[in-house]
Design a protein around this nucleic acid. Structure first.
Lengths: 230, 230
DNA sequence: AACGGTTTGTAACAGTTTGTAACGGAGAAA
DNA sequence: TTTCTCCGTTACAAACTGTTACAAACCGTT
């Protein structure tokens, strides 16, 4: 995203349409050359309260940004997909956990160097501005869903947003869920059981089909869009 | 906020701690000199879908940023208070409504001029970056509340956030609510009735007192903080 | 192949929140 | 003053979601 000057489309449910598919036209600057770090499923990239030393770009897998409440409740703020950046912002410390939902790879960039460079380079600063603006739009979209929509609307919208990310081939789109039910529940402000019930309902309505729990076949994307609230 | 280089404190429930109290140390640049526009209660500053021609700084009153769903449901994204900016971002068109909850004044700044200047001036671009980062933090905080907290927790937290904004004098903080119950409900993802019932409960618990519907006296801020989930 | 642990699915029940409606007060308009 | 409207409060029933419990499926390991 930072590497592209394309218009950035905000997207519901935490993600953004990744620009990783669009080869960056700019010369690879120093911020494209950080070291790669492998992250196992459920491993943390950083924790709430950690000093914000690095910004990370997702290279592979999915990272969940989340806030943990004292009594164990958890809200996932967004899922970061390949091409997305996490750890942007101006605070000294992270205020969220960043945890891989599945095996992942991230590129580590020095936050201090990034900001120092941005204070001299207006175009880099503007890229930061645009990146955070896109995150803001995504967070607000999710807020609208969680604040106003029913469980069915939220889940339908979430599946739709995943399907736009996946390579939509033939009439029947297949989405591989790269996270657990509990992650989806914590993103949408629901419980695992409600997520499970709603998926079952979508299946009995023949809107989707689920194979081995993680492979969602979208049989009627039009109906799914209606259920998501247009 | 843009006018200050101070650290920006993110705040739950849509607002930010305004920097308007801190006199800007920088020379008044062109973006501090837009024309002032008076807004009546319930009047729109801009609407969802309008071309994004201006950025506005709140001078007086409160502006509610909100998204209207097809069937009338509404989610308020944030309340903007004096010193805050609305209309930032990189999209061509607004994707939210901006409506005054009470009589207000805003300063109008050309979006095109702002962005053109930012593409040359790294420090301005960084200020935009920081401003949007603060909005992002606020949006995420609200998301956590709406996604995970009970009606009582959300309302207590909202009242607390208002009290930190108000001049906290003696032992008994007084908060003047600059918006209607429906605005609070739409911010917190509740109904008017639930807001009303919860306020009544807080009153019978002698945590707050309400005078003429709009004046909230916080009698036991410690208890209120507990109810808000610490 | 068998085994534990994790994850998911299903069901009954409880609880909070909502929807609907009625009532009352404050303020504006006549 | 009277009337009207808007807003806030309260009550009751209903709906959705959460809670709890348990069974089934899946996974990696032994």
């Amino acid at each position: 995203m930072l590497g592209s000057s394309q218009a950035i489309e905000a997207n519901v449910y935490g993600g953004r349409v990744s620009s990783s598919a669009v080869p960056t036209s700019e010369p690879a600057d120093r911020f494209e050359r950080g070291t790669i770090r492998r992250i196992e499923a459920k491993e943390h990239v950083f924790c709430d309260g950690d000093p914000r030393t690095h910004v990370f770009r997702i290279e592979e897998g999915v990272i969940a940004l989340s806030k943990l409440l004292g009594d164990g409740r958890r809200q996932i703020i967004e899922f970061a997909y390949p091409g997305d950046y996490i750890g942007l912002g101006t605070l000294r410390e992270h205020i969220f956990d960043a945890q891989a939902t599945c095996a992942a790879k991230v590129r580590c960039l020095s936050a201090a160097a990034l900001e120092q460079e941005a204070s001299r380079d207006a175009s880099l600063a503007l890229r930061l501005y645009k990146a955070v603006s896109a995150e803001l739009a995504a967070a607000r979209s999710l807020l609208v869903s969680v604040g106003q929509q029913s469980a069915m609307e939220r889940l339908s919208g979430f599946l739709l947003s995943l399907s736009t990310r996946a390579p939509s081939e033939s009439d029947e789109t297949v989405v591989k869920l790269p996270m657990r039910r509990s992650d989806i529940a914590d993103l949408l402000g629901l419980t695992i059981e409600t997520v499970s019930r709603t998926i079952t309902k979508l299946r009995t309505m023949r809107v989707i089909d689920v194979v081995r729990g993680t492979e969602v076949h979208i049989l009627d994307s039009e109906r799914l869009a209606e259920l998501a609230g247009q």
